[in-house]
Design a binder for these strands. Structure first.
Length: 278
DNA sequence: TTGTGTTTTATTGCCTCC
DNA sequence: GGAGGCAATAAAACACAA
């Protein structure tokens, strides 16, 4: 027994021959109370040897005892000394047995609690993972869309520049003068006033958080990178969107020339395939 | 019936608190 | 220093398939 130096030694001796307990919990359920009491009496006699000596045998608590202990555990999972003694008296157990039962019960409860916590954490993790996967898919879809748009833009640019060259070299020169991205500070000033884009972007319905961009974005900087940043910030703030998207867009780099042509005053209408007419 | 895995009861050793 | 809590573990009791 634990701590034999203290009161444990007496408890140890007594607990070797615990009071009335059924040998088999099944018996308790099968027989009547009176008959069971008789059986218990016989068992108790059995547990004491012929000379009344204690035979060391571990015994399970009766269903009744366990139920009572469970009830008490529900009320308070720790035992004050008075409660322990009272409970022990009520159930015909040694206070030490009650204490041990509570101790073991607390250990079981803790294990179950850990399992519960693990289940909850795992569910959260799975949900997050699913969300992440959806975002990844969304990211890929957007990247593909961007690539497609860039290709179309390039195509349009090459076509229009060819036709302009053929029609009038003077107009071509004018276009060049107003070009947004000639790295000239003055030209940027012009673009600031004129460059205004109304775009509507529809994201695939498979998206976990489908959003609709309906933006009017003014170019405030010659850097295409920064333009995309402000563009995305609006989307994120307006749609509670995830930050990953910002990263995606930041990674999708237009070359300086591409972005310049994109916002060239003269070439704004070349995005007609992209606008919805709103 | 028996082997094996699980559950329950009890012990041990260490730690903290008063 | 004693009381009590906890983790780890032993051992008995139990459940169950083969």
């Amino acid at each position: 027994m634990k701590r034999p130096s203290s009161s444990g030694s007496l408890d140890a001796l007594i607990s070797i021959c615990p009071p009335k307990e059924e040998k088999n919990s099944k018996n308790k359920q099968v027989y009547s109370r009176e008959f069971q009491a008789m059986l218990d009496g016989l068992e108790e006699e059995d547990s004491l040897g012929e000379a009344g000596q204690a035979t060391e045998k571990k015994r399970r608590l009766s269903i009744h005892q366990v139920k009572a202990l469970e009830k008490n555990f529900e009320v308070e999972n720790k035992l004050e000394p008075e409660r322990k003694v009272k409970l022990a008296e009520e159930l015909g157990l040694q206070p030490r047995q009650v204490a041990i039962w509570f101790q073991n019960r607390r250990a079981r409860w803790k294990t179950k609690q850990l399992e519960k916590d693990y289940t909850i954490l795992k569910a959260n993790y799975d949900a997050l993972k699913l969300d992440y996967n959806n975002l990844e898919q969304e990211k890929e879809a957007l990247t593909a869309k961007l690539r497609e748009l860039k290709a179309k833009l390039k195509e349009e640019n090459s076509e229009s520049s060819q036709s302009v060259k053929e029609d009038s070299p003077k107009v071509s020169q004018q276009t060049k003068d107003h070009d947004f991205c000639d790295n000239d500070d003055d030209s940027i000033g012009i673009v600031k006033e004129d460059c205004n884009v109304n775009a509507q972007l529809l994201i695939s319905p498979a998206s976990s958080s489908p959003f609709r961009f309906n933006g009017s974005s003014s170019c405030s900087d010659s850097s295409n990178h920064q333009w995309f940043q402000s563009f995305d910030s609006r989307m994120i703030l307006g749609n509670m969107y995830h930050p990953q998207l910002v990263k995606v867009e930041e990674q999708c780099t237009f070359t300086a020339e591409e972005s310049c042509n994109f916002f060239s005053v003269d070439q704004a209408p070349t995005l007609q395939w992209y606008f919805t007419g709103q």
